[in-house]
Simulated scan of single mutants.
Amino acid sequence: MANGCEMCCEILIAILLPPIGVCFRHGCCTVEFMICLLLTILGYIPGIIYALYAIVFVDRDQYFDEARRPLYAQN
């Protein structure tokens, strides 16, 4: 998980260039990046909204931990 300064810098970059902010967090060949790129091409504001969502709320590491899987994935 990122510390406060890293998160703040990623949010500022995501406001200026949404796909670049998502790329720093998730990588350039991920679904999150492609969605953000498409939304930014279609409209700048939806790209910013999705980039902020992807940076702040989407944490890929939690899905690989057995104790923190989403409720719908548990048996």
Rank of each mutant, 00 (worst) to 15 (best):
residue 1 M to H: 14
residue 2 A to Y: 03
residue 4 G to R: 13
residue 5 C to P: 07
residue 6 E to P: 00
residue 7 M to S: 12
residue 7 M to N: 13
residue 7 M to L: 15
residue 10 E to K: 13
residue 10 E to G: 06
residue 10 E to V: 03
residue 11 I to S: 12
residue 12 L to R: 03
residue 12 L to Q: 08
residue 14 A to H: 03
residue 15 I to Y: 07
residue 16 L to I: 14
residue 16 L to G: 12
residue 16 L to V: 15
residue 17 L to S: 03
residue 17 L to G: 02
residue 18 P to W: 01
residue 20 I to R: 04
residue 20 I to K: 04
residue 22 V to E: 04
residue 22 V to R: 02
residue 23 C to D: 04
residue 23 C to P: 02
residue 25 R to S: 08
residue 25 R to T: 05
residue 26 H to A: 04
residue 27 G to S: 01
residue 30 T to W: 09
residue 31 V to H: 12
residue 33 F to A: 07
residue 34 M to K: 14
residue 36 C to G: 06
residue 39 L to R: 10
residue 40 T to L: 03
residue 44 Y to V: 11
residue 46 P to F: 07
residue 47 G to N: 07
residue 47 G to A: 09
residue 47 G to L: 04
residue 49 I to K: 06
residue 50 Y to S: 09
residue 50 Y to K: 05
residue 51 A to D: 05
residue 53 Y to N: 12
residue 53 Y to R: 00
residue 54 A to C: 05
residue 55 I to M: 00
residue 56 V to W: 03
residue 58 V to I: 12
residue 58 V to P: 00
residue 58 V to T: 10
residue 59 D to Q: 10
residue 59 D to R: 12
residue 60 R to M: 03
residue 61 D to Q: 11
residue 62 Q to E: 14
residue 62 Q to N: 12
residue 62 Q to A: 08
residue 62 Q to W: 08
residue 64 F to T: 05
residue 65 D to W: 02
residue 65 D to Q: 08
residue 66 E to R: 14
residue 67 A to Q: 13
residue 68 R to G: 04
residue 69 R to W: 01
residue 70 P to A: 01
residue 74 Q to Y: 00
residue 75 N to D: 12
